[in-house]
Design a protein around this nucleic acid. Sequence first.
DNA 1: AATGAATGAGAATTCATTCAT
DNA 2: TATGAATGAATTCTCATTCAT
Lengths: 193, 193, 193, 193
Amino acid sequence: MSDKKEKIREAAIELFARDGFHETTTDRIAKRAGVAVGTIYNYFGNKRDVLDYIFLTEHSKRQDIHDEVSNVDTHPLDKLEMIIRRHFEEVKENPEMVTVILREGHNVGEKVKELEGLKKFLENIISEGIDSGHFQRIDAAICSSMIFGAIRAIMRDFSEAEESAKETPELFDQALEQLMMILKKGLDDSNNQ
Amino acid sequence: MSDKKEKIREAAIELFARDGFHETTTDRIAKRAGVAVGTIYNYFGNKRDVLDYIFLTEHSKRQDIHDEVSNVDTHPLDKLEMIIRRHFEEVKENPEMVTVILREGHNVGEKVKELEGLKKFLENIISEGIDSGHFQRIDAAICSSMIFGAIRAIMRDFSEAEESAKETPELFDQALEQLMMILKKGLDDSNNQ
Amino acid sequence: MSDKKEKIREAAIELFARDGFHETTTDRIAKRAGVAVGTIYNYFGNKRDVLDYIFLTEHSKRQDIHDEVSNVDTHPLDKLEMIIRRHFEEVKENPEMVTVILREGHNVGEKVKELEGLKKFLENIISEGIDSGHFQRIDAAICSSMIFGAIRAIMRDFSEAEESAKETPELFDQALEQLMMILKKGLDDSNNQ
Amino acid sequence: MSDKKEKIREAAIELFARDGFHETTTDRIAKRAGVAVGTIYNYFGNKRDVLDYIFLTEHSKRQDIHDEVSNVDTHPLDKLEMIIRRHFEEVKENPEMVTVILREGHNVGEKVKELEGLKKFLENIISEGIDSGHFQRIDAAICSSMIFGAIRAIMRDFSEAEESAKETPELFDQALEQLMMILKKGLDDSNNQ
DNA sequence: AATGAATGAGAATTCATTCAT
DNA sequence: TATGAATGAATTCTCATTCAT
């Protein structure tokens, strides 16, 4: 992985996060990355490829998290908690990345669009939970979509919070706690009569 | 409310929904609205004002829904269900509008950004529920944000579904049912020991 | 035919003639035409379309000449002379046009390439001459191609001549005389034993 | 003559012939020549120098032909035929070279432009023919220019013919025959009354 | 009020050339 | 000599906005 390519990726994340994809010019990306415009085009076919690359890089991180978690043998609720917690940790460390992912999803290329990593992972875990009798019979796709939406909302709140607020982000801890509580009661089959 | 202004708003919704704000030119909006480009500028200060206007129009519709619901005297879970149901109904009727709201939120002006209608309504209802002892003690802001996110996710699934799928949208009914089930168990205080 | 479109055509001819198609920027065309760059794109899809339009305009002039001449009932050698003379007259009046036609033929679009007006006209006349027994049996295509080439060479000499020389252009008269003399003897069948 | 320099010349001919001077990038020349871009600049000052070098190389070949022919003691018409035949043979062997010469003449440097080899040779022969009384009194410059133009036209027809057609190129034989027939009758003084 | 031709700043992308290795 | 990553000036084309009619 070239030094310059990484520099460009990082510069693009900062700018896409702050100004959005369309408002960010290749000139500014280059300047912030400390390279010439032409250099961007030595590593990427065009501006949108830079965005795609950001998504792809992020997606493989999520893939790693999922692989790690799915191998653990534990209650599906714990798996959900683990994966969401890990996700939030990533977000805390790369808040700008989240802003980009949230804002620019519709600007990425078709192939990248199909990835939708986290949502699929949640769906897998929920499906397993239903199969193993831990969860009541619900539609895993719809449910995972909603959980995913809830997570996105928290990320959005975080990414829109004041800079000061970001430095003590208990938001994630509180949100995780509340979400898990709701899910625990809401999904658990033993609760059902 | 001028006839032309409304024509422009409708044309813009269709195009913003399909192509996004930045990919839509004022020329195309004008053509689809059946007016000249210059006419757009007789009603709006600039292109972004058209987007703002779309958001504002939508927001006042949501306001009406909320006013209606908040006056009903019933269990807060029922209020939640009513408001979400009404929201989904609106979405079914104006799917393109939703696509615009979801995609272009970050392109609107600062004032419009602050509106965030539905989320505030949810928060009010949840706060009331807590106060009245119907809901357990949770953070209403975080919780409403997550519910709002779950709703957005469903809308997103809907707005990205194939055209054919849109014509028989039981998605909303199922999603509403599942969401309410989870919330019922997850929020209700009587469930708590 | 819009005033501006014509201005742009004329400016482009001058610049393409002097600097060539690729060395001429759209900015300079606009400046010389006294319009804004954007205006070029109100009348033409892209820069190459401007070149195509130059060729097409010229082609229809040649078509007119041909139509006029082919209706005259006279010896095919006279027809050749008439058409070449008329052609040279056009060239004298629009020397820059010729330079463009000679230099930029390979940059025009496919459709325009196929026109090859004058050559076809010559071929028609020669074919007729052969059929009517005035000319000996030669390959009309090859022969017209060579005559066309000879004419181009003269035009090239003219377009490359010093400015001063252009103002007394007997070159064409002399060339026409010599060419006709050679063709008269070279093509005439009565000369053949 | 360095091996690499020759490789670059050959690569450039192929690409200039197919795509034209301006559409050919130095990167592609380098790739096709099997060297690095930088290497081109070890042998040539800039891109245009490569084109100049192609013209110069070709010009010295033409010079050799002329020297050979001009030493033969025979009728000027035979000399014309010999020189044109030899020229066509070269063309058959290096069709791409011809395409380059025809297309890119106006892109070469000033010094190269002045060479105009073949035309000068033709003019010499015609002048000699007039002086020796074999040809009637014509303007040798104009006449050689026209013959040169006719030859170019044939080359152009050849270089634009389908690939298949190029493999059985009787075109040149027919063209040569017809051109010589016309010139024989058209130039010969004995034919004159 | 409505029009739409004209505008020109601005953006993405290209590519000849350089130079450190 | 050879290399090829880096450069950044230059170019084409777009499109929001204006304003004379």
